[in-house]
Design a protein around this nucleic acid. Structure first.
Lengths: 194, 194
DNA sequence: GATAAAAAAGGGGTATACTGATCGATAATA
DNA sequence: TATTATCGATCAGTATACCCCTTTTTTATC
């Protein structure tokens, strides 16, 4: 810790208006910003997932996508994006890696030749089954610090937030099995100007 | 919608072990997995942040990093990583973009010539001040669907989870706790201090 | 003072995630 | 039928986030 003992020579420009800015930032520090806290928890879940499922190269998103395939064989990529709540271009990226690993297979639909239908391979189903205990353990460990009442309230809050803000993002979640209610391509344009 | 009314010809391989797998996945569907829900909320916050702060090209992580700089001028990149809770290589990436945008400046430490000290420029401080209301609005909107009691419980739960799982990931907030090392299934090593 | 250990930064590589844009196939309409 | 609109997929580009490994500098040890 001797590193910061010595004082680095100052270098002008330490303006006075910095005081009010500092005050502003201390009024709402990082650990009071939900967005910051959620990002941290998100990363922690990733770390826990890799620790539990680590001997395979599967990721949380890949496992989630394959979960959808296990109950929805032969759906197209946009339907996956809608159910998973990620962007459709990202679905294509994830599928490319899963296909390379032999866990899913894609084929052109014979009815709509724009669409590519995706399904799990046998290896994919085996992977999903094999790592199911690992996946659940990662989920459990993440919330192990909460008692069951807190845990339930926390999960409820997450679902509430998702449903309340569902209209944002390129792919809006459908509440599973519900109608695919066109993602409506809502506005959400931003930056790109200038 | 009319598209999927017609039935795609089946294609063998629809094994019946799929039944048990399907059952497994329905026992713990996506919307009951904390990791999945947190990822969704994380994305929603990003979308809200961009919607509020959108006219600039700042991102939540960049704003968070600059928040740290506003109360910690002239710290090195690893200290930033520790305080922000992100990987140190990622800090370098973010800083490179911020420097390119003229919002921060880096200079070699005169005491420890390995270290590069970072501080906000005047433009950086102005950006931080200017978009403070936008940032807080994004935070507020995300949790607007919760009442104040739920909101508080939610934030408490997030902090509890972060503190309880702090030893995972490459950068553990504020550090100082011994190595732990756990299983390291994926060679996930943390810089243990001993 | 020379050498070994550790720390700071950076490069290379990969995965997630979203934007804008394009392109072919399909659907709807004139 | 021909035109138009829409839809599914994909590409290019950027940002976040992490891993491993190397280089340079500092610190610790002999």
């Amino acid at each position: 810790m001797a590193k910061t003992d010595r004082v680095e020579p100052a270098r002008g420009d330490t303006g006075e208006e910095q005081g009010s800015l500092r005050q502003l930032m201390e009024d709402l520090p990082l650990w009071k910003r939900p967005g910051y806290l959620i990002r941290r928890v998100h990363q922690l879940h990733y770390a826990l997932f890799f620790e539990e499922v680590g001997d395979s190269d599967i990721t949380p998103v890949q496992y989630g996508l394959m979960t959808i395939l296990s109950t929805n064989p032969d759906i197209d990529q946009i339907a996956i994006a809608t159910k998973l709540g990620i962007d459709r271009t990202n679905v294509a990226d994830v599928l490319r890696r899963l296909e390379r690993a032999g866990l899913v297979e894609r084929r052109q639909s014979e009815i709509d030749r724009r669409a590519k239908l995706v399904r799990l391979t046998r290896a994919g189903r085996e992977m999903l089954s094999r790592h199911y205990p690992d996946m659940t353990r990662a989920q459990t460990r993440l919330l192990a610090c909460l008692n069951s009442k807190q845990r339930e309230a926390f999960l409820d809050a997450l679902v509430t937030i998702i449903e309340a803000n569902n209209q944002f993002g390129r792919s809006s979640l459908t509440n599973e099995a519900g109608g695919t209610e066109t993602k409506s391509a809502r506005g959400r344009k931003k930056r790109s100007t200038e």
